[in-house]
Design a protein around this nucleic acid. Structure first.
Lengths: 131, 131
DNA sequence: CAGTATCCTACTTGATACTG
DNA sequence: CAGTATCAAGTAGGATACTG
């Protein structure tokens, strides 16, 4: 992610915040963390079914989260193999700010939808006038 | 964003949460909101300089945020034109969960970096053994 | 079961150039 | 100044097939 030169003049925290956000802030990471926070421990295919995520993306997401120290991976060399995932301490600590965000999201979904509709309606009227 | 059928069995909130997150949870939206929360009111080019964002992306991000009812846009038809942006009430209310996230991000950057390094080091050792 | 490998499409983003 | 239009490049993400 190449960052342009003009970055020098910006609010000091923005760069670092966005660093972390691009790490753990993407759609799938957040959902995996929420699921693990809710259920404690889950197997690969349990997560897959839970989230409606493709095998490929789940595999990648879990590897990144393990790499960043947010989830633990436990491999049981049975036949068939069994792999379990759960949150590390840091993963747990991430839970709180994330659920605050989730809470806000749920509370404001309706308002946002309404704002969108009125915005779109206004845009359409403008369009009609212009024609 | 087409969602697969298997979604039916998932945690009920995940879908709605991810809806909102894909709306206001992307990198630039969060940074714009943080900046406006910090400075109150900013002009287009002030935001652009602050964030090191391209004109195109800033324009799109602001339009979406306005559409979702999170920011106000005020157009002054002077020459040259002057456009000011600030947070709406809902935008302000978003500030709290977002700064909680930002706070967590700042606090855990170092830990995450350390986790990555140790993970990568372990992966390299594994690689060396395999060869 | 828990992945990896490959292929392919669609969206995202930046750079550049132009406009009122 | 505050954008829009266009193009080029990279990335996200799904589908499919294969492996230990």
């Amino acid at each position: 992610m190449p960052v342009s030169e003009s970055v020098s003049e910006q609010c000091p925290d923005c760069k670092r915040i966005s660093e972390v956000l691009t790490r753990v802030g993407d759609r799938w990471s957040v959902l995996v963390i929420i699921s693990l926070a809710q259920y404690g421990t889950l197997r690969f295919n349990e997560l897959k079914r839970n989230l409606g995520i493709s095998q490929r993306m789940l595999s990648r997401t879990l590897r990144e989260l393990e790499r960043d120290g947010l989830v633990n991976r436990t491999y049981h060399p049975t036949i068939p193999p069994k792999v379990e995932y759960n949150l590390t301490a840091m993963g747990e600590s991430f839970r709180e700010p994330v659920s605050a965000l989730g809470q806000w999201a749920l509370e404001n979904l309706v308002t946002i939808d309404a704002a969108r509709e009125s915005y779109d309606a206004a845009a359409e009227r403008k369009q009609a006038v212009a024609s």
